[in-house]
Design a protein around this nucleic acid. Structure first.
Length: 95
DNA sequence: CAGATGACGATCA
DNA sequence: CTGATCGCCATCT
C-alpha cells in the first residue's frame, strides 16, 4: 500500500533541478498539510541519492537541515542548482 | 501495541 | 530578526 512515506518519496523525487518545495507543501501534496514534520523525519532516514531531498526547504524559505548524503551542505547544493538566496539565508523563488 | 522521535510550523517575547 | 515554547503526526524501536 502507498504509505504517506512512499508518497513523499515520490513527490520529492519529481522535484526538477533548480526548483524547491517546502516541507509543508510536500506534506500537503502527500495528503496531510500538518505533517510537515513527518516529511523531514522521513528524509532524515532516507539515504537514497536518487532523491533530491536537498530541494525541500522550510516554509520560512530557510534551508533547514540536511543529512549530507551527497557530501555537501544543503545550502551549497542549492546554490549549485542556481537557486537564489537573500542576505538572511532565505531562498528566493522566481515565481 | 505504546512510547519516543524529529531535515517542521505558528506564535510570543 | 533571533530564540524559546507548544502543537502536530507518521515512523521507528
Amino acid at each position: 500500500m502507498t504509505s504517506f512515506r512512499d508518497k513523499v518519496i515520490e513527490i520529492v523525487r519529481n522535484i526538477p533541478r533548480g526548483k524547491v518545495l517546502t516541507y509543508s507543501e510536500v506534506a500537503d501534496m502527500a495528503g496531510n498539510l500538518k505533517a510537515a514534520r513527518v516529511v523531514g523525519n522521513i528524509m532524515s532516514k532516507n539515504t537514497n541519492k536518487d532523491i533530491p531531498c536537498h530541494r525541500v526547504i522550510k516554509s520560512d524559505m530557510k534551508v533547514g537541515s540536511y543529512n549530507g548524503i551527497l557530501g555537501k551542505s544543503k545550502l551549497d547544493i542549492l546554490k549549485e542548482e542556481k537557486v537564489l538566496f537573500d542576505n538572511q539565508g532565505k531562498v528566493i523563488r522566481l515565481s
